[in-house]
């Protein structure tokens, strides 16, 4: 017994406002995007004939196809870097730090920046990356180079460096959760049976944390694919990924071209999420093992 009766009409009506809001603001606009991307003709109206011309035009342009490729490569790079880094940090925080206070302090130091503005954190990289930036000043002071390297600000390297600091937490968070749910008895049993530490890790711990790894990778993937703000802040207008192209077309009032890119972005994301779900059954995560 509780303040709400199971399967009562009241429970249904309480959910209606939130459901209507999400349907109207998230689902309908995304379906609309797909529809608009097929619109032909000159006018922007619902009576436009449907064609594949917008897509044909996109794929006919080598620059755009190359951009799509480099977006995929860039995203894969970030997934690899944040994945490895995030796993190491998650493993250290949950398995190696014994004192609860230290663990809490390190964990907070790790996740707190996540709560501040991503845009501001991206901007915070500007004083580091410029020609006279902190990194170049340090390199010249140490004597690694004589003249400043121009490879940081307005470059792919700079974007990657900033995004690694922004998104490693997303790769690590789910792994921390999975590591915490492993019963210590499992590892002890394996150790008692004389398995060396590396085998224990590879055969016991890692498979059990795999769902966490996959979910972290999905989060990084989705965020990097759609993060045009960091690319614009650090890459200037020299570098662009698919998401920046949406913005570029939108600002140029090429709505149909923008929606083509948006739909392609959406397809990439769907493929990524579906592939991840084939590895991990997300609905079984909460269930007891």
């Amino acid at each position: 017994m509780s303040t709400i009766r199971v399967r009562s009409p009241a429970s249904y009506w309480l959910a209606v406002p939130a459901a209507a809001w999400m349907l109207g603001v998230v689902v309908v606009p995304i379906v609309l995007l797909v529809w608009v991307s097929f619109w032909g003709g000159r006018t922007f109206s619902t009576t436009s004939p449907l064609t594949f011309d917008n897509y044909a035009r996109f794929f006919a342009n080598q620059t755009y196809v190359k951009l799509a490729m480099s977006t995929v490569v860039h995203t894969a790079t970030l997934m690899a870097v944040t994945g490895v880094l995030g796993y190491c940090i998650a493993y250290f925080l949950t398995m190696k730090v014994r004192s609860p206070i230290w663990r809490m302090a390190l964990f907070l130091a790790f996740i707190v920046p996540f709560w501040t503005s991503t845009l501001i954190r991206a901007i915070a990289w500007i004083p580091f990356l410029g020609v006279n930036g902190v990194i170049n000043q340090t390199l010249m002071f140490v004597g690694v180079t004589q003249s400043p390297i121009e490879a940081f600000l307005y470059s792919r390297t700079g974007i990657t460096m900033a995004q690694v600091s922004l998104y490693t937490m997303m790769a690590a968070g789910p792994v921390v959760y999975m590591l915490n749910s492993i019963a210590p008895a499992l590892r002890e049993a394996a150790m008692t049976l004389k398995a060396p530490p590396l085998v224990v890790f590879w055969r016991i711990v890692f498979p059990l944390t795999l769902p966490g790894v996959v979910i972290g990778q999905v989060l990084v993937f989705l965020n990097v694919m759609s993060d045009f703000a960091t690319v614009a802040t650090i890459g200037g207008n020299k570098h662009a990924l698919l998401s920046n192209l949406v913005l570029l077309f939108y600002e140029g009032s090429q709505i149909r071209a923008a929606s083509v890119v948006a739909v392609l972005l959406m397809i990439c994301m769907l493929i990524g999420v579906v592939a991840a779900l084939r590895v991990v059954d997300i609905r079984r995560l909460g269930a007891d093992r």
Partner: peptide
Amino acid sequence: MAPGILVGFGFAIM
């Protein structure tokens, strides 16, 4: 899960 760029853009068109 839905990225802000898609939701914002779609809603603007709507």
